[in-house]
Design a protein around this nucleic acid. Sequence first.
DNA 1: GTGAAAGCGCTAACAT
DNA 2: ATGTTAGCGCTTTCAC
Lengths: 353, 353
Amino acid sequence: MTDTARDTATGTPPRRYGSRPTMKDVATRAGVGLKTVSRVVNGEPGVTPDTEHRVQEAITALGFRRNDSARILRKGRTASVGLVLEDLADPFYGPLSRAVEEVARAHGALLINGSSAEDPVREQELVLALCARRVDGLVIIPAGDDHRYLAPELAAGVATVFVDRPAGRIDADAVLSDSFGGARDAVAHLIAHGHRRIGFLGDQPGIHTAAERLRGYHAAMAAAGLPVHDGWLSLGPTDPERVRGAAAAMLDAAEPVTALFAGNNRVTVTVVRVLTERAAAAPVALVGFDDFELADLLSPGITVVAQDAGRLGRTAADLLFRRLDGGGGEPRRVVLPTRLIARGSGELSPSPA
Amino acid sequence: MTDTARDTATGTPPRRYGSRPTMKDVATRAGVGLKTVSRVVNGEPGVTPDTEHRVQEAITALGFRRNDSARILRKGRTASVGLVLEDLADPFYGPLSRAVEEVARAHGALLINGSSAEDPVREQELVLALCARRVDGLVIIPAGDDHRYLAPELAAGVATVFVDRPAGRIDADAVLSDSFGGARDAVAHLIAHGHRRIGFLGDQPGIHTAAERLRGYHAAMAAAGLPVHDGWLSLGPTDPERVRGAAAAMLDAAEPVTALFAGNNRVTVTVVRVLTERAAAAPVALVGFDDFELADLLSPGITVVAQDAGRLGRTAADLLFRRLDGGGGEPRRVVLPTRLIARGSGELSPSPA
DNA sequence: GTGAAAGCGCTAACAT
DNA sequence: ATGTTAGCGCTTTCAC
């Protein structure tokens, strides 16, 4: 026996607290070779039913569980993908994560995920931690705008797909919603209902989607030959306090806006609150980017530009696994359409000032 | 040079696609020993600034990233915890996951998570996959009611905390909301507002929380000396179709219920839809278990028994890491209080039948 | 301050 | 059908 002192002649498993039986322990107990245990554990052929039975018995008796760290080290593949998003608690990301997880599961992979909290440093830490874990692929909703730190990983073959926003300063796959088109449609919709002074409440201007939606706003206004005043634009953090202040400023101006376009679901919800509190004043039209649960049950219902978070996640994950399965070619950019859903709030006419 | 053929005299890194440089490659390139690289990578003392500099240079030049699989294999700890929940897309679990992640992050651990889709088999697969990955700890929102399969893992020292529902047939830590008390309060609230025929629309009876909430319902009715008719109780899947049917049956009965108690947020939302569609009919009071976004902005506002999902997650994760840091002792059961928030829907009087 | 050797638990390649 | 050997990339131990 070339063994260490782990085992004894009695067959008693070595079970000091915190240690676990290994394949060798199972092999010893079952009276077979190490490789046979490996075959049984992995369902490989070439084991007689009788031997297999003895091994299985040893496995359950010892409470053996294959150590995937060793397996991964040997095989090189981890069967896991990383997902980095902004905030797990944001309802927009729930369906997205779920979709990614579903696809991963269909491919036998686990999901490791983390939130960047919209902090580029944290994003990078997370991504690199995932790379150290040697995830096979990465789905990233980027917080930062410089992803050159990923170059070595990409070169090493880590499949990477960006979602919701494109990568910065590197060339990588991206799956996006049509923020520009959606925003343009939203604002055009308000214009079609008679509005000329329309406010835009958006996310931080550094965020790609925020910039695109602002661009869509400008495009619609320009197409209608309408001027845009600085006071009608507010981009920044989406915390309720800031949004409230910005909305109040637009609504209390000498020439107040008669309609608001909210740049994402967090902003929309806050604006709904503001408008509800001001119900006594002249009604203000509202269109929000992103759909959200119960938007149809408010009164008026909230008109939104809906993007399909689940489809975004599914598309990204599909693309990821296509890459992992050897799908080569140039980095691709997929843009998914948005859909304007009229529910009432966006169809209000400007109040006769 | 005892090296393999991986490297050449020119110092060119071995970069066939998909392979990554190792510490040995870095060592060769920097002209130092393997252990010195390890020291630098892990910030261990005992390296001269000059040596450290050379190593750092080789690291960035080669795009080296420590392979944590090997590290984990050697160290035995993975610095990761697993989270198994029902559905990432359910808004209840967003804040919960976020809280767990936050605590994990504070302890330098990664989060690996998956959804059981309320399927016990899938739950077990997931949990065992996480154990094979040798996660240090496990936070589980159980779908099944038999967790004896976890016994070997617990014996091996995998810290495990159950959340929202207790473990079945094993003794393990659990962090729960006071489902019984919350439900009793909710129903008592409706009774206090004059209701005598109150319907309960709940989750599958096999789920611990559903059973507890039903028990709370019965307790409140009994305390008020009110009878309970079979037709007022409906437990089952929370898909909208079933809930709609069950609600309709209660509302269209010969002696219809005048109030409904919804057993969780999914059910509440569907009931709100049903009641909105029936707005023409006599108003029906409603109290829902779980708070949800915008509940206050509906009209009437939805009265709820709120549980703090974030606190649930935080408490569980705290307990988990206390165990990991050597906190021993008997398995603990923590029960967090719920809070009734009156917003209007629960204060409606019974319509004079 | 630095490095050589052993070995974590598994799988791949090759015996038998 | 089954077993033996080597080694994945790192950390640990111990020698220098």
